[in-house]
Each structure stands twice: as structure tokens, then as C-alpha cells.
Amino acid sequence: MSEPSSSWCNPMAVSTLGSGNLRDALKLPPGEDKNEWLAVNIIDLVNQVRMVFGVLCESECTDSKCPSMTAHGRQYTWTSEGTLLNTSAPQYIDLSLTACQNNVDDENVFPSEIGKQFPTDFEERCQAIMRRLFRIYAHVYFAHVNHFKAIKALAHLNTSFKQFVLFANQFQLLNKEETEPLREIIENLISFS
């Protein structure tokens, strides 16, 4: 499944859609509430990652092909009440997306009524969601980047991840260690923006 780094980090391969002004579109507008801006953008990213995985979940990322949730130099697992769960990659990702969606749908976490306040730990919750989404990107780039080339959607994947990275960087939602598995491709995406 894994590829040599030189292949998927090749600048020629890090193509994106015509999104020259994407960085500005993600900046916090003047006078806008920060939590409000975090909320509307994270919901957007959750939808994107769900579609990205939707392309793989039928035949590409299966229990037999991806028996463990792996990325470059990482293996991600879930624990429940102190017990380690041996989940396959599709199981791990399904649980991740379900957890993210539950947060987004929770009126007490992402309030949509006028006048309702965000929880005090809203930023921490956003960071947790971003970590989960990043790990899904990490596995996709580690194991399935060839498939996205085959379906001519690599530029779309790169654009989605670029939006993710630009947004995370603006609001410091991911630490450096967490993003180590995709450090090279991140540098390529940012430098080309």
C-alpha cells in the first residue's frame, strides 16, 4: 500500500484546483466571532472528509486491504475504558467520522440557535475533531493516493487537504508532532499556494 516518498511528494503531483485566494477566504473576517468562524468551517471540513472516504469505502479501503489504521510512521488505535481495540482502517475511520458528526450535530457543542453560547471548551473540541480528520487524511495519502490518481481526483484531494491545512494553521488547531506523517506534502502544498 505504501509508496516511496518521492512519488507522492513530487511537486508535479501536488496539483490543486484553481484556488489562488483560498487562504484569504479562510481568514477570520473583521468583526466576526472566532468560535462562529471555527464552527462553520469545521462543519465544512467534516463534510469533505466524509466524501473523500466515501470514494474509498466500498472497494479500496476494506478490512482485508487495510487491516490496521496506518500512516507514515504511525499506527492509530482506539481505546475504550482502557481496553485497546484492534480496529481496521475503515472501522477506525467510520468511528472517527461518527464521533465528529455527533459533535457537529450536538446543539450544546455547535449551537445554531440565535443567542445560544458556545461551550467554554469549544476550541479544545475543535482541536480533537481536527486531529481525527488529519489522521484520515494521513491514511488516505499513505495507502490510497494511487487510487485518487486513477480516478483523476488527486487535485481535488490535494485541494481539500490544502484547505484543511490552511485553516488549521491559522487557528493553531494541530500541533507539529501530529502532522509529522504528512510534513513533506504539507510543505509542498503551502509553498505552492
Binding site: G73, Q75, Y76, W78, L84, L95, A99, R132, R135
Partner: peptide, 10 residues
């Protein structure tokens, strides 16, 4: 690979 574990709700 470095193992990263995260808790998840039951």
C-alpha cells in the same frame, strides 16, 4: 510504527 491511541465513547 509509533502507536497512537485515543479514547472513544462506548
Amino acid at each position: 510504527p509509533k502507536r497512537v491511541s485515543s479514547p472513544i465513547d462506548r
